[in-house]
Simulated scan of single mutants.
Amino acid sequence: MANQESQVMSLPLPPTQYINLFSDENIRRNRAPRPPPPIQDSYSMFGIQYSNEEMIRSLESQNIKRLIPIHFDRRKELKKLNHSLFVNFLDLIDLLIQYPDSPRRTEKIDDLSLLFVHMHHLLNEFRPHQARETLRVMMELQRRQRIETAARFQKHLERVRDIVNNAFSGLPEIHNEDNDNIEDIKMDVDSHEINTSNKSDQLDRIMCKIVDGMD
């Protein structure tokens, strides 16, 4: 049993098991799992060891025969590999038609697999550049959206200022004559209140004399 190969899952566990750990109660009580620390050396993923020092594993580290030079133009090499794939595929078809039992059939299949591995490796080496370009495009899009938002806000601000200025300019102006008229009106009201209070006092005195005479 010890010599048997360990079974490795091709896919991770369903995310429900992890979602339940991050419930509101666990987060409120600070019981939610902490993020794992960054891996320093190497790690295993799907049964394959990966080193943290190299983002893309080299062909030599995977025990794969290198067909392309160390320093090369990826565009030219991809075109060469594509051409070689077509040639080997046609050779394989000829072998299957003319010599179906030939052992060269296995050799051609291995050659095709090796060419596909090299093409896949070249495309993977382009991934970091693709990620940087994608990030640059995303940041440029965010910058453009923020500039457009700021421009729209400035436009609305100018419209609000114009509305407020027009509202102030439409208000009637208060002149000195109007102030004098307002003061005269206030004085008339005050004098009327005084006269009214004096008349009421005289009527009270008369009523008091009449009541005293009746006694």
Rank of each mutant, 00 (worst) to 15 (best):
D162M: 10
E53T: 01
L123G: 02
E25H: 04
R132M: 10
R66G: 01
H120F: 06
E60A: 02
Q17E: 11
S169E: 07
D41I: 06
L123P: 03
H71P: 00
D94N: 14
R28G: 09
K155E: 06
E177N: 10
R34M: 10
V160H: 14
E107I: 10
L114V: 01
R136L: 03
E125H: 13
M55F: 06
N166V: 07
L112G: 05
I147D: 14
F86S: 11
F153C: 14
S169T: 03
Q142M: 14
A131D: 10
E158N: 11
D41L: 07
H129F: 15
N26P: 00
Q130W: 08
D178A: 12
N198L: 08
E173Y: 12
S191F: 01
A151R: 14
Q154M: 15
D180E: 07
R152Y: 06
N52E: 08
I56H: 05
R132Q: 10
E148K: 13
R127N: 11
D162V: 05
N88E: 03
P103Q: 04
F116E: 07
L13G: 03
L203M: 14
M187I: 12
K209E: 05
D204W: 11
N26I: 04
K209L: 07
L123E: 01
E125L: 15
N198G: 04
H156A: 14
N63K: 12
Q40C: 08
K79D: 06
R144A: 15
E140F: 09
I97M: 15
V189P: 02
K209Y: 08
V137S: 13
L114S: 00
L13A: 08
K80Q: 10
I39E: 04
L95D: 05
M55T: 07
F46D: 02
H83F: 06
I64F: 02
S113V: 04
L141I: 11
K76A: 06
I109G: 01
R104M: 13
E5A: 11
E133M: 12
P172C: 00
R74P: 00
T106N: 15
I182G: 10
L21P: 03
Y18P: 01
L85N: 00
V87M: 13
R74D: 05
R105L: 01
F86E: 08
I109T: 05
K108L: 02
Q145Y: 04
R159D: 09
P14C: 03
R29H: 11
M119A: 03
R161G: 12
E183G: 07
V87H: 11
G170H: 12
N30K: 07
A151P: 06
I109W: 05
R143L: 08
S42T: 10
P38V: 04
Y99L: 09
D91R: 13
E183L: 10
R127D: 08
R127K: 15
Y50S: 01
N179K: 15
A2M: 10
R143E: 07
D110Y: 10
I185Y: 09
Q17W: 09
N198M: 10
K76Y: 02
F168A: 12
L67N: 05
H175S: 15
R143G: 07
L67Q: 06
F86C: 09
K79Y: 04
